[in-house]
């Protein structure tokens, strides 16, 4: 069984985690095009290489992100969401500042 390193709880069996899908900033509901919204909701990039994914350590309900190589299944690093989401999104216009 694979191990995954949780930024809060350390190395644990992958069975302690819930997969949360690929990291994908949500486009602005009001300004994005129909096409872009559909891409966001229904299409997956299916990248061969490094992707960023959401993972949740189930027993502690702790969400974090992992950079994983989909070709080798190697997890390069894991980190907390505040690295990407640096401030509170107060207005719907605001987007996360960083994109991978």
């Amino acid at each position: 069984m694979k191990l995954l390193s949780c930024p809060l709880n350390g190395l644990r069996n992958i069975s302690e985690f819930t997969y949360g899908g690929e990291y994908h900033p949500t486009p602005d509901h009001q300004t994005t095009s129909s096409r872009d919204w559909a891409e966001h909701v229904f299409f997956h990039d299916n990248t061969a290489g490094i992707v960023i994914e959401w993972w949740c350590h189930t027993p502690s309900s702790f969400w974090f992100l992992a950079e994983r190589n989909t070709l080798t299944d190697e997890v390069v690093r894991t980190f907390t969401p505040d690295e990407l989401y640096t401030k509170s999104i107060i207005q719907h216009e605001t987007k996360p500042e960083t994109t991978p």
Partner: peptide
């Protein structure tokens, strides 16, 4: 340790 014990959190 926050973990799974007998499949229970």
């Amino acid at each position: 340790a926050q973990t799974s014990l007998a499949k229970t959190n």
